[in-house]
Simulated assay, not measured.
Amino acid sequence: MEKLNCSYISIGFLLGIISSLHCFSMCGPITFFFLKKKEKKNQNQIKIKNQNQNQNQNQIKIKNKN
């Protein structure tokens, strides 16, 4: 009976590992795609903010010269 319980536990453990690897290989690329898309969107927003800040600084400089 002791060997039987141990084999059920080890089979359950191996099935868990196999199903985890399957999930990672199937859903991993989809997750990676969405993370990359979000990262690009954030970078574009940062560029726009920096451009706006530079324009504001240039306007302040022009006003100070006058």
Rank of each mutant, 00 (worst) to 15 (best):
S7N: 05
K37C: 06
N64Q: 07
F33N: 10
S25L: 03
N64I: 07
I60Q: 11
F13W: 11
K65H: 07
I60M: 06
H22T: 10
I9H: 03
Q53G: 06
M1H: 07
K40Q: 14
N58T: 11
N66T: 08
I11P: 00
Q51T: 14
H22R: 09
N56V: 12
K63W: 01
N54V: 15
S19I: 11
G28S: 02
F33L: 11
M1P: 09
I62K: 03
M1W: 06
I17T: 05
M1T: 05
K61C: 02
F33V: 12
K3R: 00
N5I: 00
I46H: 08
Q51K: 15
N66H: 12
Q55G: 11
Q57V: 10
K61Y: 09
S25W: 05
S19G: 00
I17F: 08
S25Y: 10
N66I: 09
H22N: 01
Q45S: 15
F33I: 11
N52E: 12
N52M: 14
F13V: 06
N58Q: 15
I9Q: 00
S25M: 07
Q59F: 09
F13H: 06
Q57L: 09
K38L: 08
N54R: 15
K36P: 05
I60T: 03
F24P: 00
G28I: 04
K40V: 15
S25K: 04
I17N: 05
Q53R: 14
G12W: 06
K47H: 12
Q59Y: 10
Q57M: 07
K36G: 05
L21Y: 04
C6I: 02
M26T: 12
I30E: 01
S25C: 01
P29S: 04
Q59E: 07
N44M: 14
L4G: 02
L15Q: 05
N64Y: 02
H22Q: 05
S25Q: 01
K38R: 15
I17W: 00
N56S: 10
Q45K: 12
N5F: 11
E39D: 15
L4Y: 02
C6M: 08
F13K: 06
K63I: 09
S7K: 02
N58M: 08
N50R: 08
K40I: 13
K36A: 12
N56G: 09
H22K: 11
K40A: 15
N42P: 04
L21V: 01
S10E: 03
C6N: 05
S10Q: 06
L4N: 10
